[in-house]
Nucleic acid binder design. Structure first.
Lengths: 206, 206
DNA sequence: TTTTTTTTCCATCAATTGATGGAAACACTT
DNA sequence: AAGTGTTTCCATCAATTGATGGAAAAAAAA
């Protein structure tokens, strides 16, 4: 039998799925504590108790959302690995940056949710972490910085994290940075990609 | 006559200053909406109404805090400019990274407060922004990427922002990244510095 | 149609939040 | 000591929050 989360994913028109989608957008926009269950219910167009009927308490909904997001990101990273496999290093870098920045620009709430997670005290929460560690090692192998996931040098991991964080901040902070750079949205995307590629090449080709 | 903020800064033992210090730490740790005025008052060891007597509403306190922080960061950037002036490029890079990362590691709430600011909807808030744009141009001139602050190429600004953001995230997300890199705090600082320097050199020497 | 199950909403609760009025305590001047 | 102004705290308020019980409505089964 399918889990509640799987059920919600299977039928995107189901109430559970609609609530999850709104929750994801709003939690991503305002953070956990600034997003009220009433805001989410209002966004879906339902009463607050309907939300509680489907998802139980607020934290459960948030956990489901993070789990969902984790799987989605993992899938994206697998796509990167697959499409980069066999290509030259410079092509691998290009492909991975293109896929990831396009994905994050298309779903800006993802960057926010990940960044919000950084502030959580470790262990204090029962909320599942975004599994950045796994992704990082995967990318390291895909970029040929390590032979297998278990033996990635700390420097390689740190450089991947640096680039990854850089992308996240550029996307979450677009409203902040775009006036500084004085470009429109489409040019902003271009500048971000250029900048990231520019910094990534020497980091992974030496 | 000194402004309230100046007064608080002049005498760090004054009640206003003590409240400001606690507020800075707590807002930096939990964000604006998750930090209650009762938490701050409790941290100082006073009644909540004493806090209101000195600072008025919560948002005023937060604004004062950000203004204070802005001045402090500006001072740090001026220190960087001053101590980097006349040195060779590689020395300038070393000095600026050392000063900034040491400062941020010593005051981890600063990174958090800046990052929290990224999420604010532009214009929605009356809270004064952290003036990253000014700092960025200043650094660009100090690094000799531009002749004057008014004519900094967009690529140069973007690269400075990238490095700056990278540092912020490494510091705010230490609890998150340190287990991934599997190092202790002191080695973490070392790795962060190394990584940032490693990525900065090619970004500013080409 | 009738019965049963599932879903939705209204009303409400207790706890927490930002905020204030007013009394008490304190400090300072005369 | 008496008077004056400042600072602190207690008690309380209205609004918001997460959460629930139970009635009504809708859907499914009989």
């Amino acid at each position: 039998m399918p889990s509640p989360l799987e059920k919600a994913r299977q039928d995107p028109d189901s109430m559970k799925a609609r609530i999850l989608a709104s929750a994801r957008r709003l939690f991503g926009e305002y953070g956990y504590s600034s997003t009220t269950t009433r805001m989410i219910a209002g966004d879906v167009g339902i009463d607050i108790s309907t939300l509680y009927y489907h998802w139980g308490e607020k934290l459960d909904l948030y956990e489901a959302l993070i789990t969902d997001l984790n799987d989605e990101i993992l899938l994206k990273f697998e796509e990167v690995e697959q499409r980069a496999r066999g290509k030259s290093l410079s092509e691998r870098l290009d492909i991975s940056i293109d896929i990831l920045t396009d994905y994050l620009f298309k779903h800006p709430e993802v960057s926010n949710l990940i960044l919000f997670g950084y502030f959580n005290k470790a262990g204090t929460d029962s909320v599942p972490d975004i599994k950045i560690g796994d992704y990082t090692s995967g990318i390291a192998v895909a970029m040929d910085l390590a032979k297998d996931k278990a033996h990635v040098p700390v420097q390689a991991k740190a450089r991947i994290l640096a680039v990854w964080n850089c992308v996240l901040n550029f996307i979450s902070g677009e409203n902040f940075f775009r006036p500084i750079l004085n470009v429109d949205h489409s040019n902003y995307q271009k500048v971000v990609k250029e900048t990231v590629k520019f910094m990534m090449v020497p980091a992974f080709t030496k």
